[in-house]
Design a protein around this nucleic acid. Structure first.
Length: 255
DNA sequence: ATGGCCACCGAGGGTGGA
């Protein structure tokens, strides 16, 4: 079983890349972020034709998340219950016996800004909700664009901004791990300077000036079955790419 | 050597991303 996450930065623009990637990687579930399209514009037919079901919640211009899956989505939840938010950043669904959550964490803009305060509030609400979810769903995957580089090795050494690497953001990430979640990527040996996002400017991809901010957190019962976790840089090399790359975790099919 | 982007809306730059 393969579960992946990918911030596509516009589903409309990236649909050809997405369809190619589904055909070549054949994930069982793929969490998407930054759809930037309203629900009536969601390309459901093309995705169905590729062999996938979809649970999604979108809006005009910004945000928007989806879960594509071979099996149907059950018990679909959009947004964080009890957290009033016009921004579409969460969709959760049960796929087989695994609870899958596609999350687009707020960017935060700059430490101390209004958007940063929103980011921390959102993280607090997410953490409280996940604590409940984990009591209902022992097998859970939190996948998405976290907009947090959890450790220094997850940011290029020359990254100068505070945002994505600040202490409060990293503490919030640790609080998620404190729920009993595990960073699937760090369960395995990885190359140094492994990143999932590179700025469009400054030839950042070529220079590998990036951040690892796209993550797959998996609950403890899933850890023994995890076989492999990697970043697929191939789509970042295509014409007109997303600035993020897919991250994939593979589980053994037994259990 | 430095640093040059991209997608959105909408009709020209302004906003947001990270």
């Amino acid at each position: 079983m393969k579960i992946a996450t990918w911030n596509v930065n516009s589903l409309k623009v990236r649909l050809p890349h997405l369809l190619d990637w589904l055909a070549s990687e054949q994930p069982d579930a793929l969490c998407l972020q930054e759809l930037k399209c309203e629900d009536q514009a969601f390309p459901l037919e093309a995705i169905n034709a590729a062999g996938y079901q979809a649970a999604f919640t979108g809006q005009k211009t910004y945000n928007g998340v989806a879960i594509l899956s071979r099996l149907p989505s059950e018990a679909v939840q959009k947004n964080i219950p009890g957290f009033k938010d016009a921004q579409r950043r969460i969709v959760a669904a049960t796929i087989g016996d695994v609870r899958v959550i596609s999350a687009y964490f707020p960017n935060g803009q700059a430490v101390g800004s209004e958007k940063f305060a929103y980011k921390l509030e959102w993280l607090k609400a997410l953490t409280a909700w996940l604590r409940e979810e984990l009591t209902q769903h022992p097998k859970l995957v939190l996948a998405g664009d976290f907009n947090i580089a959890p450790e220094n090795r997850d940011a290029h050494p020359d990254w100068k901004d505070e945002i994505h690497v600040s202490v409060p953001e990293r503490e919030a990430f640790q609080a998620l791990l404190g729920l009993g979640l595990h960073d699937a990527f760090r369960l395995f040996e990885q190359a140094e300077k492994s990143f999932s996002w590179w700025d469009y400017r400054m030839m950042a991809f070529r220079r590998n000036f990036g951040l690892r901010i796209d993550h797959l957190l998996i609950s403890a019962p899933l850890v023994p079955t995890a076989q492999r976790c990697w970043v697929d840089k191939a789509p970042r090399k295509l014409e007109r790419p997303s600035d993020h790359t897919p991250v994939i975790v593979e589980f053994s099919s037994t259990n």
